[in-house]
Design a protein around this nucleic acid. Structure first.
Lengths: 226, 226
DNA sequence: CTTCCACTACTAAGATTTTCATATTCCCAC
DNA sequence: GTGGGAATATGAAAATCTTAGTAGTGGAAG
């Protein structure tokens, strides 16, 4: 599970970092709102943890901004305040839950589980990813292209495809793809990406016309109208 | 839907009142345990929300008392505590779910939906679970597949089967299954799931075609037409 | 005491991912 | 155009990871 933490207090961040590694969670950290927003746009996260007060952009504003993009990613706010009026504001801005500082790792873990479980269950009524040609349900890991099921994708292939479907027309370097799809702790050969792209091109009908090589840069996914 | 809230903190009550009216739910409020019990006896509710600690009668005692009347109304406990031992006590007293304060309306709504959905299934579930091939009565723990009784399932096997029957086609990781079927507080070996899957595959005719391994992810249950 | 069940440990088999060597394509300067 | 250099495509072996299956332990129930 990939978590983005936007928090300017380094001691809180490092504590979370330690905690995540113990729990087997993958954490990405940003020190201010602008950086946080940028990282949010670039990566795909299962959960956001935002500090209420941040330099650059208030956490609460960042939260609203993220919701305005249509994202339904679970958001937990960290706050020193405990007044209910603040919480109401927070909820209206789209936060899913609150943790007041100082907090214990166990408390946070319980919230993380609660919030992500709700998201997983699809209580938000998520139907899956739909594009011109594709229909993907993450929960069942089903891929359908033009009415035809593609059921022989391996885990990495599936993840890579989903990432591209969710970021169409955008060019990604191999490094970025390794970061986003493989995870931050990948230190292998960048050619690995090439191989997976090749497999997707082969396994998906007309794959050559979907996965475009951007010479000298990386790859992009684009469905052509024709 | 009619909900009885027993909560002594007025600000929480008023927030819930506001929330209910927005969601189109009907709320009845009691400020202490005795009043709560009286209202419970007088009215007919689809759901009870009880604060853990109450003047007059502890929420936990109220919960037990209500269960002693034979009522199976869904109960959600509100608690500031977050320790697992408390939750265990709560579940033993008959609570259906927990929400720790402070909580978000969204979280609460998710729980309300989950709990009442469960209750509905249980209430109308005189017939049990029916699928293309299965017919399961939870109360008697009977399993019939294609007219043939399967009566040698162990408790865990039965639970696991029921869970899958209720979540067809969905892929679950071992971690998720342990959480959902075994319970929140399981920290054992994930391979345990494999063994139970294997047993179900063996004990249930054509089990191999029902329990699908999703490589690198987990398992899913799917009844295939072909 | 015996039986049954849940869980763990271990091994072999199998699938996937990565690496690597080689072929091919592409860009750019000439 | 053409050739050189760099980047990408491809195929296949190697390394890694995942699962199935079996057997056995311990504890609970009868």
């Amino acid at each position: 599970m990939k978590i983005l933490v936007v928090e300017d207090n380094p001691s809180v961040s490092s504590m979370l970092e330690l905690f995540f590694s113990k729990e087997g969670l993958e954490g990405e950290f940003a020190g201010d709102g602008l950086e946080g927003y940028r990282k949010f746009q670039e990566g795909e996260f299962d959960l956001l943890i935002l500090d209420w007060m941040l330099p650059g952009m208030e956490g609460i504003a960042l939260c609203r901004k993220i919701r305005e993009t249509g994202s339904e990613v679970p958001i937990i706010m960290l706050t020193a305040k405990d007044s209910e009026s603040d919480q109401v504001i927070g909820f209206e801005m789209g936060a899913d839950d609150y943790v007041t500082k100082p907090f214990s790792p166990l408390t946070l873990m319980a919230r993380i589980k609660a919030v992500t479980r709700r998201a997983r269950k699809g209580d938000t009524g998520e139907e899956g990813i739909r594009t011109a040609h594709f229909h993907v349900r993450k929960e069942t890991r089903e891929v359908v292209k033009d009415g035809q099921a593609i059921d022989n994708l391996t885990p990495k292939e599936f993840d890579l495809l989903v990432f591209f479907l969710q970021h169409p027309k955008q060019v990604f370097s191999r490094e970025q793809l390794l970061e986003q799809v493989w995870g931050y702790q990948f230190y292998g050969d960048e050619r690995t990406v090439d191989v997976h792209i090749k497999r997707l091109r082969k396994k998906i009908p007309e794959g050559d016309q979907l996965f475009h090589t951007v010479w000298g840069v990386g790859y992009k996914f684009e469905e052509l109208a024709g």
